[in-house]
């Protein structure tokens, strides 16, 4: 009886998701195997994406940029997270959290555009430097918040207690901060890695000729080049890579996020 009302209530959500998300993904899989020109099913597109050095280079280049973004945002935000989680109190903590979460509400595109104007003025034109600055700038909040969330679990005053026991700054970092930060580093890194890997806006707007990463590549294949097969196959490959990295990262920290 109760179960039937549950089914009725959940049905619209399930149907909507099936129609709007899962059905399109079937289309994606279909086109990744279907050669429209020859009218046959084939795995050529996948072989192309995996073996063709042009695609491979783009994937590797995107991955390099993503990893660099992860490392840079991590290095930049860890001290900030430490300060907010361990040293700030009361109003200052709320203020800082608001300051660092507000950028979430402002669109990526707008922040990239704002940065582009500024870089233009100080003489940095489109290229690798602008691209990296843009990536780091846009992804700082995504790294900072998970870091903060995991450091905030450190019991209050533990740093003071450690100091009264004679722990130096190095001990405190090695024995308290780093161990507590690990899950946050993991969550933040995966988040930033996945999002920056497939980023489209920043490379196109700030990268110039150095901005040809997988996002723009897919855009070119599908919307500009009409090459649906390769575009679809590439989209699936990056999805598989993303899912794999999530599974690998969370096998050890199941249930930590959400």
């Amino acid at each position: 009886m109760v179960e039937r009302s549950l089914v009725i209530a959940v049905a619209p959500l399930v149907v909507a998701l099936l129609l709007l998300f899962y059905a399109p993904n079937i289309a994606l899989v279909y086109y990744s195997f279907y050669d429209r020109v020859r009218g046959v099913f084939t795995v050529d597109f996948y072989l192309d994406v995996i073996t063709n050095t042009v695609y491979l280079n783009v994937i590797l280049y995107s991955l390099t940029i993503a990893v660099a973004t992860v490392l840079a945002t991590l290095a930049l935000t860890l001290p900030v997270a430490v300060y907010i989680a361990l040293y700030s109190r009361g109003f200052e903590r709320i203020l800082l959290l608001v300051i660092f979460t507000t950028p979430f509400w402002i669109d990526f595109l707008l922040r990239a555009w704002a940065l582009k104007s500024l870089l233009y003025m100080v003489g940095v034109r489109e290229g690798f430097l602008a691209l990296m600055v843009g990536m780091v700038y846009d992804y700082i909040p995504f790294m900072l918040l998970p870091l903060y969330a995991s450091l905030a679990r450190i019991p209050p005053h533990i740093v003071d207690v450690a100091r009264t026991l004679g722990a130096g700054a190095l001990d405190i970092w090695a024995r308290i901060i780093i161990p507590y930060a690990v899950p946050g580093v993991l969550v933040g890194s995966t988040l930033v890695l996945l999002m920056s890997f497939t980023e489209l806006v920043i490379p196109s707007l700030l990268g110039g000729v150095r901005g040809f990463t997988v996002g723009p590549l897919i855009y070119t294949l599908i919307l500009a080049g009409d090459d649906w097969g390769r575009g679809a196959a590439l989209a699936i490959v990056i999805t598989v890579l993303s899912v794999l990295s999530i599974v690998l990262a969370y096998r050890r920290f199941k249930g930590w996020l959400l």
């Binding site: 998701l17 998300f21 497939t198």
Partner: peptide, 24 residues
Amino acid sequence: VDALVYPPIVMPEVAEAVALFLAF
């Protein structure tokens, strides 16, 4: 239901966008 809900959040947006484009 959870298993159906999480993939749209996890899937790279570009890939999801391509899927929608192809389906439409």
